[in-house]
Simulated assay, not measured.
Amino acid sequence: MTIAHEVQPGSDVRSGSAERIGVMVCGHGSRDAKAVAEFAALATLLEDRFPDWPVDYGYLEFARPVIRDGLDRLAAAGVTRILAVPGMLFAAGHAKNDIPSVLNTYAAGRPGLSVEYGRELGIDPKMLQAAADRIRETLAAAPDLPAHETLLVVVGRGASDPDANSNVAKVTRMLWEGFGFGWAETAYSGVTFPLVAPALEKAARLGFRRIVVFPYFLFTGILVDRIYAAADEAAARHPGIEFLKAPYLAGHPLVIDTFVERVREILTGDNRMNCGLCKYRTQVLGFEAEVGLPQESHHHHVEGIGTGQGAPRHGHAHDHAPGHRHDHDHDHHHHHDDGHDHLHAGAGGHGHHHPYPHADHPLGPRTLKRG
Rank of each mutant, 00 (worst) to 15 (best):
P125M: 02
M127Y: 03
D161V: 10
T138W: 06
A159M: 10
T150S: 08
D161M: 09
G158Q: 07
T150F: 03
R157H: 15
A130L: 02
A169G: 15
R136K: 12
Q129V: 03
A169D: 15
D144H: 12
D124K: 02
I135K: 02
R157Q: 11
R134F: 09
V115Q: 01
L121E: 07
L121G: 02
M127K: 00
S166G: 15
P125I: 00
G158M: 06
M127D: 02
V155M: 09
T138L: 04
P162K: 13
E137P: 00
A141M: 12
I135H: 00
L128R: 03
V115H: 01
G156H: 06
Y117V: 03
Y117K: 08
A132E: 09
P146H: 06
S114N: 14
R136E: 14
V154W: 05
E149F: 04
A130N: 03
A141N: 12
A131D: 00
Q129S: 12
P162A: 12
G158N: 08
E120R: 00
R119L: 05
P162Q: 13
S160K: 06
P125R: 05
E116D: 15
R157Y: 09
D133N: 08
E116W: 10
P143G: 13
L152N: 00
L128P: 02
K170W: 14
L151D: 05
E137M: 13
G122H: 05
G122K: 05
P125K: 00
D133W: 01
T138Q: 08
I123T: 11
D163Y: 14
E120A: 00
T150D: 01
V168Y: 11
R136F: 08
I135P: 05
R134I: 06
H148K: 13
L152K: 00
A131I: 00
L151F: 07
D133Q: 07
I123F: 12
A132I: 01
V115I: 15
T150V: 11
V154H: 05
D133H: 10
D124Q: 05
Y117G: 01
L139E: 05
G122L: 07
E149W: 04
L152S: 01
D144T: 13
V168Q: 03
L145T: 11
E116H: 12
A147W: 08
L145R: 13
V155F: 07
D163Q: 15
A130M: 03
R119Q: 11
A142V: 08
A159S: 15
V115S: 04
A169F: 11
D161L: 06
V115L: 09
Q129G: 02
A164H: 03
D163P: 07
A159G: 08
A142D: 13
D163V: 09
E149R: 14
R134C: 06
P125F: 02
T150G: 04
P162R: 12
A141S: 14
L151C: 11
N165G: 09
T138E: 09
A142Y: 10
E116I: 03
N165P: 11
M127V: 15
L145N: 03
T138R: 07
V153G: 02
P146E: 10
P143M: 09
V155K: 00
L121W: 03
T150R: 05
A140N: 12
Y117C: 06
